[in-house]
Amino acid sequence: MTDLCVRLVPLFNTLSQENQIEIEDLVRKKIYQKGELVVDPSSDDNLIIVAYGGAKLYNLDENGHENITQILHTGDYAGEDWLFGKKNSNTYVEAIENSKICLLNRKDFLNLLEDQPMLSIKLIEQSMTKMQSMQKQIDLLSLPKIEDRLSEYLQEYAVKVGKKTFNLPLKMKDLALYLGTTPETLSRKFALLEKQGVLTRKLRKIILN
């Protein structure tokens, strides 16, 4: 059971082991290399589960620049809107490290909901949780000072991983996009926070003081 992708998704936690195995039989697993696209607008409608590794979910503005809307870590998932018929017109998912991704097809998932109606309620609950997470990013971007956005992001990530020493989950370019700034400005703000004694940085290793 420890290797089941579906066990990583809160949506399926209330199901019996037998039902989880039934769902797992519908899942397609694939290894993606860092920088490889998992999803683009031409892809099939799938629920995406990160078995291990990480990915970024983003869209492109009119100038072709990335706007990161979500960072997926081990156990995170995305794509429930596509499962229920919303068309993907401008969303991309890209591996930010070598990752194992599990894909559950829309047709298979809808058939599953007919057999497991309680999943619909669970899905709504989890969607609300994800909306709260997206609201956190909006709140971050509302902070006028970049250093405050950066500090808040690092503090929240430290809580998520349960330790104050960790490696940045994103490249500087991607983190800058997530926080609404440039890599050059972000580097200066890291230096500022280090000077203020908020953190110690050694390349991608961060130690919060």
Rank of each mutant, 00 (worst) to 15 (best):
Y92H: 05
K163I: 14
K145N: 05
I21Q: 10
T200R: 12
A191G: 06
L83T: 14
Q132T: 04
T91D: 00
L110W: 05
V6I: 11
C102E: 12
Q33F: 06
I101V: 14
F166P: 03
G53A: 09
E152D: 03
P183N: 01
L15K: 09
K160L: 11
K171A: 15
K136H: 02
L143Y: 04
M118I: 07
L186A: 14
L57D: 01
K195I: 05
N98P: 00
P144C: 06
F166W: 11
L83I: 14
K145L: 08
S142G: 03
F84P: 02
K87A: 13
Y32M: 06
K34Q: 08
Y77D: 15
K136Y: 04
P183T: 00
L170P: 02
V27L: 09
L175N: 13
N46Q: 10
Y77R: 09
M172F: 09
T69I: 13
Q196F: 05
I21E: 11
E97V: 07
D61G: 08
I68H: 07
T165N: 13
L192E: 14
G162P: 06
L177S: 15
Y157V: 03
P41G: 11
Q196D: 12
E94K: 09
A95G: 05
T200Y: 03
E97M: 07
E147C: 03
Y58E: 12
D44G: 11
Q155H: 06
S187H: 08
S127Q: 09
N88F: 09
L179P: 03
L186E: 09
K87N: 15
E80W: 12
Y32C: 11
Q20C: 13
K87R: 11
K100C: 15
L8H: 15
E62F: 08
I101F: 04
L141K: 01
K189T: 03
I49N: 05
I101G: 02
S120L: 14
K87T: 15
G53P: 00
D45G: 10
R149I: 08
E24F: 02
D40I: 05
D76L: 01
L203H: 11
L15A: 01
L26E: 14
L150T: 09
F12W: 00
F12I: 01
T74Q: 13
Q132M: 07
K163R: 14
L203S: 10
N209Y: 05
L113Q: 01
E125Y: 09
P183M: 03
I49S: 11
K56S: 14
L112H: 01
K163L: 13
I71S: 14
Q132D: 10
V39D: 00
Q135P: 00
D81E: 12
T69N: 12
K205H: 04
E94V: 06
F190M: 04
R204K: 07
L112N: 00
N63C: 11
L112Q: 01
E125W: 04
Y178D: 05
I68T: 10
E18G: 05
K56Y: 00
I124R: 03
K173P: 03
K145Q: 08
Q132L: 03
F12M: 00
A95C: 09
L4A: 13
Y58L: 10
A95Y: 06
Y178G: 12
Q135G: 05
K107I: 15
K130N: 04
L179S: 01
L154H: 01
L104V: 08
T14Q: 15
A95L: 08
E156Q: 14
V198L: 06
E156G: 00
K171Y: 13
N67F: 15
I124S: 07
